[in-house]
Amino acid sequence: MVAEQTQVPEPSASSEPLLRVRDLTKIYESPGQRIVACEDVSFDVYPGEVLGIVGESGSGKSTVLQCLFQDVEATSGQAFLRSFEDGERSIFDADRRERRELRTHQMAMVYQNPRMGLNLMVTAGGNIAERLLAADWRRVDEIRDKASDYLSRTEVPVDRMDDFPAFFSGGMQQRVQIAKALANNPELVLLDELTTGLDVSVQAGVLDLVRDIQRIYGMTAVIVSHDLGVIRLLADRTLVMKDGHVVESGLTDQILEDPQHEYTQLLVNCVTN
């Protein structure tokens, strides 16, 4: 079993996957056009684990995350989250209210473009407060304590808490977005190309940050990147996607050292050569 070899902070919970995805398919259909963005994608994510999804641009990685976060509706397939109906009912069958619960309590998404994940009309602290307010926090001092806690975890100067992230640098916006995603301790964090839009100079800092957060707080995450360097640094296990399909999966180290599928071999050689 692959799971036994992965880092698992809470051994008692390790036997059962936190997320099970089965035959996830998304087809974009318009008159005269049918795009299979992803097809029959299946995988498990265990508690405390970071699962990577790697593949070239257009391979369907973002689509998988968008379906899981229900920004878009999956065409078919199922996804079971341990905390949603004891993992017995697919989150794709959630009604609107349940879906909102999933998006504000159980899951969080960090988008490639911080503008997608942040509300630029409210302060950095307000962005974090939004998830706490959704969870019925009703003391301003406690909300602000918690917000500054999350901001300092993501190395955003706490004195910027009442400023608007619209005026922050890209790297700082991404840190605020991560802080927001961590607010209210979601069970599962989805991260899409988290450093792709950033200056090379700040990419390493953000990656280190996510790795440290994962180590310290044991976050469970699915992280998508076209960049094997990111995957190598953060992911315990990795899926390789091509043309909407999973072509290979396994421990990240194994995939990097001994890629089986010729597409993976190509990817790995591109990076190492």
């Binding site: 504000t104 509300n119 409210v122 307000g126 407060a129 939004e130 307010l133 959704a134 301003v140 909300i143």
Partner: peptide, 9 residues
Amino acid sequence: SRMWLALYE
């Protein structure tokens, strides 16, 4: 929650 957020802000 957005109403509460407006009050927080």
